[in-house]
Amino acid sequence: MNRLPSWLIVWCAGVYAFLHIPILVLVLFSFNDSKFSVAWEGFTLKWYARLWERQDIVDGLVASLWVATTSTLIATVLGTLLALALARGAFPGRRWLEMLLYVPVVTPEIVVGISLLVLFVAMGLPLGLTTVVIAHVAFNLTYVVVVVLARLAGMDRSLEEAAMVLGADEVTTFWRITVPQLFPGILSGAMLAFTMSFDDYVITSFVTGPGSGTLPVVVYTMVRKNIEPSINAISTLVLVGTVILVTLADRWGRNRPLAGP
């Protein structure tokens, strides 16, 4: 067993502190009994209680959940099919299509937001939650495709061939062999997509309409008006939800066979 040199331990601790202290401070102050969150004045849960009195936050949360769920469902179905086509198809330009897939990921969000806004306006689509969902599908799709593609790459093609020799036609083979094999990838892609959608501010702020803000948009608006610790409280809740989802996605995404029925 190798012992790490102490300077390395200190260094790592420093890096982790740098990463996590701001988050800790946020969580801590969400329990701070003070209107002006600069000094600790005692423990309270009133900022959490206050969240439910604020209709704008509740509306934002509902909108966010709706947008994230809808866009995740659409992106997961489309993304899985796209991944299958990219992995299995032998058509001209396949490599190019796969490269194009990464363009939305590397494009700055603000550019994506503006371009979507221009597109929607040009098409005459009224801005609202529908346009937000479309925008979220557009950037979520890539994550689903990438995760499912990785899972497909690790899948033994002869499994499907074995099913076909055993008498399963293409459709039966797809549902009974391919989908169960891909399922961890599909689920992990979906969770990633849900998280990305739920957290997104920049793109959403461009394509959303009046009175239909998702939670990040609502929070940002609040911050600009007046800072109150209930922002810390809602941020903490979002943080906890996100961490849970990402952890689950990571667990499911591990390349392991599913337990049988």
Binding site: D156, S158, L159, E161, A162, A163, M164, V165, L166, G167, A168, D169, R176, I177, P180, Q181, P257, L258, A259, G260, P261
Partner: peptide, 28 residues
């Protein structure tokens, strides 16, 4: 198609369905 040929095959990689038990593999 392979499923219309009434043959059976043993694969180099065995190609057992990882998500099915031994019984369910054989019953497939």
């Amino acid at each position: 198609r392979p499923y219309e040929r009434q043959i059976a095959m043993v694969f180099q990689s065995y190609a057992l369905f990882p998500h099915l038990s031994v019984e369910r593999n054989v019953a497939f």
